[in-house]
Amino acid sequence: MNNLDTLLKEENNVLTRFRNHRIRQSRRFVVLVAGAAAMLTVAGCHKKAAAAPPPPPPAASAPAPTASITASPDTISPGQSVVLAWRTTDANSASIEGIGPVPTSGTRTVQPTESADYTLTASGDGGNATATAHVTVNQPASAPAESNINEQVFEENVKPVFYDYDSYDIRPDAQSVISQDASYLNQHPELKVVVGGYCDERGSTEYNLALGENRANAAKQALVSAGVSPDRLRTVSYGKEKQFCTEHSESCWQQNRRAQFTLDQ
């Protein structure tokens, strides 16, 4: 019992770590994208300046544009929305970094997952003007839900598939489970899924890992046959390294011989 508890804990730690790693990676990605965008903007300006013919003297009457932008509210939790409202004067065009060209004045609702600066650039005959609104996104202690479907909802809808002893064939009674799982996944095409293959405690560690891989794969193939894109499905074998039930009985072993579906985060 204790060993298994430890193992499960171990498994959870591993999963948490991977998730955190993933988040760190995605943060890094955002920073990179922002950096790259900034560089492009700078480079673009240079180019324009270099390529432009000697500037005609600006019409004496063209006033310099002005720009202002607000974010409301300016502090949110992940998943909440922010309304950006902006105004410009004497501008021919306007754009917001990260959003693109926008009308010269207007509002837009955004759902940032990370704290962000929204920089409005207004361009007119009289030159350019910029204004920035900052939105702070409070990161909760736990990982943010990337979708409003959480593990619990997911597992209520996408049920595991159980296997016979030493077998990875989809049983007739599992076909209806597969159909329901597939229809839920087809209704939620944004979800990516880990198909985990599990074995009971009997038999040998290495062989069970290979058998678990075959179980995960059989479930994946069944979902693919039911119309789920294989790109959304990733298989991982847990062999007998992780158990759902820890008694030494046939009913418990049956619980452990399964393909389990979890959100791929």
């Binding site: 591993v14 991977f18 790693h21 993933r22 890992l209 990733r234 298989t235 991982v236 074998s237 390294e241």
Partner: peptide, 15 residues
């Protein structure tokens, strides 16, 4: 030659 140990390990993308 006792210089290296090969083993299998569970990572994010499986074993």
């Amino acid at each position: 030659d006792n210089s290296r140990v090969a083993f299998s390990s569970l990572g994010r993308d499986g074993w």
